[in-house]
């Protein structure tokens, strides 16, 4: 991590200017994401589709009903997971914290699989709720474990607790798969984290949840900087740490749950993005959180486009690509940190 640069006005201006620049890049990523797909849609047709939609033209349907919603989900989920990762890193003061590493995603997806496959709860309102329940349960479990272990929530114990909780839930999911071939047949791709074929009506329930949680997170960002310096420092600065942590937990759970409901478990996004962002913003969460949201959105847009074209015509799951990119960065972080 780069240390916080002096609060010079130059750096300030740079960060103010960087945000619209990053947004511009997200816009470019969005265009790329929309332009790429199984069917070749020429650029001029895309432009026409965007400016004057003709409902009878299937190319326009592709742009509006297939690619744009998928890109929208990529933006929302990318932003949410990155912000969730940033919040978790700030609150636990653990550079490796992230929804998938700390087991929250395993909890959310396990709950969704059990709810859909065994209990038959398939309506759009209950999927994010189940995911939230699972994420909260897993978060509680990992937290309790780290409290229970003497020496407390060190990066190692937290990360290991997350890994074993994930392993445990994975084994349970495998047993469920074994016993219910038919019921789980259609969730294999979703379980590996995929943006393909998401139910748009799910956006109506999970989308607002994510947007509210994102806004709330940006609002809390200033206090996280204090918290990241240590509980004592934060309290001296007048932060009510318990209340803040509770709010942040709600944010993280909502962000994870909404993302899992929309795209399944996408690993390592919340690890990669905040670290990349810190290289530019330094340790100030007032900047880290909004930048993480913007950069995360762009990142997932690009990853999704890659996943679609890498093994054409077959599409690989977005979650596999995020893991392929994220795991080496995870390894690098450990390598550099303990050196």
């Amino acid at each position: 991590m780069t240390s916080s640069p002096p609060q010079s006005s130059v750096a300030q201006t740079g960060r103010w200017l960087g945000l619209p620049l990053a947004m511009g890049l997200v816009g470019a990523a969005l265009c790329l994401n929309i332009a790429i797909g199984a069917k070749l849609v020429p650029l001029d047709v895309i432009l026409t589709a965007l400016t004057a939609r003709d409902p009878a033209n299937f190319s326009h349907t592709i742009i509006w009903d297939l690619r744009l919603p998928r890109a929208l989900i990529a933006i929302l989920v990318g932003a949410s997971l990155s912000v969730a990762g940033a919040l978790m890193q700030g609150v636990t003061r653990n550079p490796l914290a992230e929804p998938s590493i700390l087991g929250l995603m395993a909890g959310a997806s396990f709950a969704v699989v059990i709810g859909l496959g065994l209990l038959g709860l398939a309506d759009n309102a209950s999927i994010p709720l189940m995911a939230a329940g699972g994420a909260l349960g897993a978060a509680g479990l990992v937290y309790l474990i780290s409290r229970w272990v003497p020496g407390g929530a060190t990066p190692l114990t937290l990360t290991l607790s997350g890994a074993v909780v994930t392993a445990f839930l994975g084994a349970l999911t495998s047993v469920a798969f074994l016993l219910r071939e038919n019921a789980f047949d259609s969730y294999r791709v979703w379980l590996s984290g995929s943006l393909a074929g998401r139910d748009m009506s799910l956006l109506l329930t999970a989308g607002p949840l994510l947007v509210i949680a994102l806004v709330l997170s940006i609002g809390l960002a200033r206090q996280i900087t204090a918290l990241a310096m240590g509980e004592a420092v934060a309290q001296a600065l007048g932060v009510r740490t318990f209340w803040l942590k509770a709010q942040l937990l709600v944010c993280v759970v909502a962000l994870t749950a909404g993302s899992v409901a929309l795209a399944g478990p996408l690993g390592f996004v919340g690890l990669v993005i905040p670290h990349a962002v810190r290289l530019f913003t330094g340790a100030d969460y007032r900047w880290i959180v909004p930048y993480a949201a913007v950069v995360g959105a762009g990142y997932l847009l690009l990853v999704d486009a890659t996943a679609r074209v890498l093994f054409r015509p077959a599409e690989i799951s977005t979650g596999i690509v995020t893991a392929l990119i994220g795991a080496p960065i995870f390894i690098y972080l450990i390598w550099r940190r303990v050196r």
Binding site: S186, Y187, R188, V189, W190, S194, L195, A196, G197, R198, D199, E315
Partner: peptide, 17 residues
């Protein structure tokens, strides 16, 4: 019959194809 075409399609919405 050769002039008549049939397509056997199956939607898998969860998996997106």
């Amino acid at each position: 019959a050769a002039d008549i075409s049939v397509a056997i399609l199956q939607p898998w919405p969860e998996d997106g194809y």
